[in-house]
Amino acid sequence: MLKRIRTEALNLMNEKGINFTIADLAKQLGVSKRSIYDHFSSKVNLIEAVLNEILSDLQVQIQEIVNSQQLNTIDKLSALLTASPKALGPLSSRVIVDIKRKLPEQWNKFEYFFDARWQEIEKIIGLGIQQKQFRTFDMRIVQQIYRGSINELYEYQFLTQSNQTFQNAIAAMTDILIFGFIATDNRQPSN
């Protein structure tokens, strides 16, 4: 029942932001509000449980990617840059904006996760540079490009106007970030 409550809560969050009510959730689940309050003391407690499960899932994914023996360096980098929640499902851009504005303590947990993920990304890029798969560049600039792109791709209007999901937009951004604009056949060696 707990997983069902969290999953449906995430569905409502993606649809309505964090402004959904416990009554909305109870109706979707076909249970009484009391049934939900038996498991969660408040709506905020429920939202925190959903977000904590998402972060936990992402942390497990990151460790699996980093420790994978099947992925090469480029595949690890791509997987790290595009990792998204699988346990309950993805977060919509609307939820991200709500969390940033209305639940700053929860958003700080996401920021901490992003920082930890970036450290793993830097290690993989460093390994790729050692292996001569990547060229040397200023990592601070790449981090700003990546974080700036993520922030812009969260924009609900952009996603709806371009008929994109956040995951598809991240995948496209990652492909451009890793492989650039120039087709492999057209690359000229630099002097």
Rank of each mutant, 00 (worst) to 15 (best):
A116F: 14
T21R: 00
L91Y: 01
S32R: 10
D38M: 14
I22M: 13
Q131C: 07
K100S: 11
A183S: 10
I5W: 00
S84V: 10
S190C: 10
S35H: 11
D98E: 08
V95C: 01
I47G: 00
S56K: 06
S32L: 11
T136Q: 06
K3C: 09
A169I: 02
L58G: 04
D57W: 03
D98G: 06
L91Q: 03
V97Y: 03
P189G: 13
L46H: 07
L80F: 03
F166K: 07
I121M: 00
A171C: 02
A83P: 04
L25A: 13
R94M: 03
L46A: 13
T165R: 05
L88E: 02
I62R: 00
R6G: 07
E64A: 11
F181N: 15
M13A: 10
G89E: 06
Q70M: 12
D185S: 14
V97C: 00
Q143G: 02
R147M: 14
T82S: 09
S190L: 12
K86S: 08
F20A: 08
L127T: 02
T136S: 08
N168Q: 15
E155L: 07
R101G: 12
G89L: 07
I170Q: 02
F110L: 13
S42Y: 07
R94D: 00
L159I: 09
R117P: 02
K100A: 12
S190A: 11
V44F: 04
I150T: 01
N14K: 05
Q164K: 06
Y37E: 09
A183K: 12
I18L: 02
F40S: 02
S93Y: 00
T174E: 00
V31W: 05
K132R: 12
L127K: 00
Q70K: 14
G128M: 01
A79P: 04
F166I: 13
I22D: 05
E105M: 15
F40L: 11
T184W: 11
V44H: 09
F114G: 08
I121G: 05
K16P: 03
P90E: 13
Q161N: 15
N11M: 13
E120W: 06
S92Q: 01
I74Y: 00
T82Q: 07
I125M: 00
S162C: 13
L10V: 05
K86W: 01
K27V: 11
D57P: 00
Q130N: 05
Q143L: 05
V66E: 01
E111K: 08
G30H: 10
S35Y: 08
Q63E: 12
L159F: 04
Q131S: 10
